[in-house]
């Protein structure tokens, strides 16, 4: 018996060393496989920046800083003139108006969901909001084009022009005529699109407030509004602002929701009822048929959009991270 065991041991000894070697090699290769994959993420960002800069270079050297201050967009001329002022203006205006509508409503819905909604309805309501946040933006865009646009032109826009159009300074912003393709319609669609997004993030953020804090406030006799104002909002301020900026980043770069209804006009009129364009809408509608300097100009627009959203998103992430750190403590 002893001899058999010994013989087996002798037989197995090289096997074990071999097996350990296999383990070691597979261990190392798995480590490097995952590490390389992680580095791909960095490479992607690097690739995006490099490809945008290379693509935008001809336009950048041709137009220089004038690109930012020129309103005219005439790429078909013999000496093309291209300026980004129109798209930048449109992007900022539509995003601003959209946030003006979506932030109060979205945060309001989040407060409703965490404090007011009857408990059996909370889960289905929250689920509905999260599902709606996943609907592709082209659906919002075509709905805005077919349904919302005609409706706005017939009812909301004339009413707003009648109400505000005659006022001294703000009148210019609401100057007519009503138009189906307008910055206002695009902004409203954007607002509807980012609404579920803001609600979902705000709700998650509000859920981080320790119940003890809220119960203590209710216990000393605070009303719901006072609890929200004095406990929930101060505790989650950084997170809500971060979430709002994340939504802003989305609104700035959104393409398909606005392309159909913004009118693709590079002229700045000052009225929110006139057609305009955004950076992403301009790229989406012109890029496939562009070439040469025209294409380079569009890529330069893309580079501008990337820098803009990068700054907004980076700020948003830093804020949300601060909240996470606070939670971890």
């Amino acid at each position: 018996m002893a001899m058999i065991a010994e013989a087996q041991a002798v037989e197995q000894a090289p096997d074990r060393a071999g097996a350990l070697g296999v383990f070691r090699r597979s261990d190392a290769s798995f480590y490097w496989l995952t590490r390389l994959a992680a580095l791909t993420v960095l490479a992607l960002l690097g690739g995006i920046i490099v490809s945008l800069v290379i693509g935008a270079w001809p336009a950048l050297t041709t137009f220089g800083l004038d690109f930012l201050t020129t309103q005219r967009w005439a790429p078909q001329l013999d000496t093309p003139v291209m300026g980004a002022l129109g798209p930048i203006y449109g992007t900022l205006v539509t995003s601003f108006v959209a946030m003006l509508i979506a932030v109060p409503v979205g945060v309001g819905i989040a407060i409703f969901l965490t404090e007011l909604c009857p408990i059996p309805l909370r889960k289905p309501f929250a689920l509905a909001i999260e599902l709606l946040a996943g609907i592709p933006s082209i659906i919002y865009g075509m709905w805005g084009f077919f349904v919302l646009g005609p409706f706005l032109v017939e009812t909301v826009q004339p009413a707003m022009i009648a109400a505000f159009g005659g006022l001294p300074i703000v009148g210019a912003i609401f100057a007519g005529p009503a138009s189906q393709l307008s910055l206002f319609n695009a902004a409203l669609i954007l607002a509807i699109m980012i609404l579920p997004f803001i609600t979902a993030i705000s709700r998650d953020v509000f859920a981080t407030v320790p119940p003890v804090l809220k119960e203590a406030a209710y216990g000393v006799g605070c009303t719901t509004w006072e609890v929200v104002r004095n406990v929930v909002i101060p505790y989650t301020r950084v997170g809500v602002v971060g979430g709002v900026m994340l939504a802003l980043g989305r609104a700035l770069g959104e393409t398909m929701a606005v392309t159909f209804i913004i009118g693709n006009s590079f002229k700045i009129t000052g009225s929110i009822f006139s057609p305009g364009t955004t950076i992403s809408a301009a790229i989406a509608s012109e890029f496939a048929e562009s070439s040469g300097l025209h294409q380079s100009g569009l890529i330069l627009l893309g580079l501008l959009l990337f820098v803009l959203t990068f700054a907004v998103l980076a700020a948003a992430r830093l804020m949300l991270r601060r909240l996470e750190l606070k939670q971890g403590r």
């Binding site: 993420v41 960002l45 700035l252 959203t309 990068f310």
Partner: peptide, 11 residues
């Protein structure tokens, strides 16, 4: 990665 997560898809 968080930034790429919400980078505009047209970019």
């Amino acid at each position: 990665n968080d930034i790429l997560l919400s980078a505009p898809s047209i970019i």
